[in-house]
Amino acid sequence: MSRNRRSPDKNNNKKRKNRRSFYQRHKKFLTQIEGLFLSNTVLERGLVVATVIIRGNSLKNAVGLGLAFALLSFFTVCVTYVVPTTIPNNFRAIINTLVSAGLFIPVAMITNLIITDISVSAGIFLPLLITNSLIVGLSSSRFHKKRFVPMMVDLINHVLGFAVVICFVGFLRELVGRGSVWGAVIPNFPTIPAVLLPFSGFIIVGLFAAVLKKIRFRLAGEGEENPENPENLKNPEN
């Protein structure tokens, strides 16, 4: 046996060390964008799942809902930031939701101007963004506990995390389900219409969540940091 040939164990150790090094080197940056990537709003935290599963079946719907979610959540959390923390959580929940419902009116008008007929195609899932878990849960338990600028950065990441996922899922489901992209049919493209149904939405989002979890394990180095917590799905209120 050649002395220059490394044993498989030494190769694995070197790869593991490099993986850990990447995560450790970029940990601060990865933590700043965790809402977009490693702690993605939909794929890791499990928030606002209904909209992605039911209405994330076309790119147009996805872009419209992503835009509405971004505007509504961003402005609601920013406006309710001024609500004093001395008010009990029970009443803060009411205030957050009422502010969100009030802001929904201009947001729906703006979204309809940009994406025509989104209120028809999205149906009740557009107004259902009012009670999304980001506003009802995370705003009091996470965002409002931070200073304003870090809060905005964190909020933008969470909002983008949802938008990216719903757009990707919508694009994929429309392509495979209808053989079209934004309504433009691709000739002779094989389709599986079942992909447009809710059960496919659950399975597709579940598969993407598994992919993200695998990426997290790889970046952390398996066994190094332990995302192997059964409570890995973050508390919507954290």
Partner: peptide, 27 residues
């Protein structure tokens, strides 16, 4: 959430797949 499920699927991902299969049954 048990160790019978592969790590990448354990918990939230396989729960969504499970709900999808139940949804198909209800369909």
């Amino acid at each position: 959430y048990s160790e019978n499920i592969p790590k990448a699927f354990r918990g939230y991902p396989v729960t969504l797949v499970y709900i999808g299969i139940l949804s198909l049954a209800f369909y």
